[in-house]
């Protein structure tokens, strides 16, 4: 017993180290797919506030007001246009408070949270097209997982016909993504537009996703390798719109019945 205690005392520092590393790796394993906690992420009010304030300091205040006003008006006009009754969308404008666009797993923080009735899985777009999906909701801020996150998948279709594929990002260039699952019997041309399929409850049908810039057909493979230039330029993203699906509870209920 005494020898055991001696050994423990001798290696106590190393044991502390091991304990801390185990905690760190548990955190990585649990949180790495996406930030789950609104406290321990940029959805934390204090953290987001720091980013937001710093952003304010460095910009022209009047220009910002004009932009915010335009963003709100955009959301309002889109509400008027939203005629797709199967989706019943309502748009809310939001400002991007913080974002990364040069990592493998990128996220952006927006200044809308649970008190603005933001919910997990909400679609996010801007004037150009799809931005991403709400991942973590805090009281005042939320985290969006954009298309440029290696964990993101989006169901898309061709604007010209109804063939459906999955959009994924390879973690390299934040302007381009790949469209998978398009069989080689489909006619594909450079310049074709890709839009949302409407199959996910996050987005209504027909929101622009990108334009095909390259299309390869590997011998022996029955699927194309398609490169898509994303409609949204993540290098200059300031305002976004959150898409709230008013039929959501009904869809969830139906899906729940299937499980």
């Amino acid at each position: 017993m005494q020898t055991l205690l001696k050994i423990l005392a001798r290696y106590s520092n190393f044991l502390v180290f091991l304990f801390l590393e185990v905690v760190a790796f548990l955190l990585i394993a649990y949180y790495n797919p996406y930030p789950r906690s609104s406290m321990l992420s940029t959805a934390n009010r204090l953290v987001a506030w720091e980013y937001e304030t710093a952003d304010e300091i460095g910009s022209y205040i009047t220009l910002r007001q004009v932009n915010a006003h335009l963003a709100e008006e955009n959301a309002r006009l889109r509400n008027l246009l939203a005629g797709d009754s199967s989706f019943n969308a309502v748009y809310h404008s939001a400002k991007v408070v913080q974002m990364t666009n040069d990592k493998q797993r990128n996220y952006l923080t927006v200044n809308r949270g649970a008190r603005d009735s933001v919910y997990h899985g909400m679609g996010v777009r801007n004037a150009d097209g799809v931005v991403g999906i709400i991942r973590t909701v805090g009281e005042h801020y939320s985290i969006v997982q954009p298309l440029i996150n290696t964990a993101s998948r989006l169901s898309c279709r061709f604007a010209k016909n109804d063939y459906i594929g999955t959009l994924e990002w390879d973690g390299k260039n934040n302007r381009y993504a790949r469209l998978a699952d398009i069989a080689t019997h489909v006619e594909v041309a450079v310049g074709d537009t890709i839009v949302t399929s409407g199959l996910s409850p996050a987005f209504p049908e027909g929101i622009p996703v990108g334009v095909i810039t390259d299309c390869k057909r590997n011998p022996g493979d029955s699927y194309y390798t398609i490169q898509v230039q994303l409609s949204t330029d993540y290098n200059r993203l300031k305002y976004v719109e959150l898409i709230s699906n008013n039929n959501r509870s009904e869809i969830e209920e139906l899906n729940h019945g299937l499980d």
């Binding site: 180290f17 801390l20 590393e21 905690v23 760190a24 790796f25 548990l26 955190l27 990585i28 394993a29 649990y30 949180y31 790495n32 930030p35 906690s37 321990l40 992420s41 940029t42 934390n44 953290v47 990364t100 797993r105 996220y107 985290i143």
Partner: peptide, 16 residues
């Protein structure tokens, strides 16, 4: 990590 949305990664590196 809280500022980078990367819980655990910087913790592991700094402890090391």
């Amino acid at each position: 990590d809280v500022f980078c949305n990367s819980l655990g990664i910087h913790m592991a590196a700094c402890t090391l």
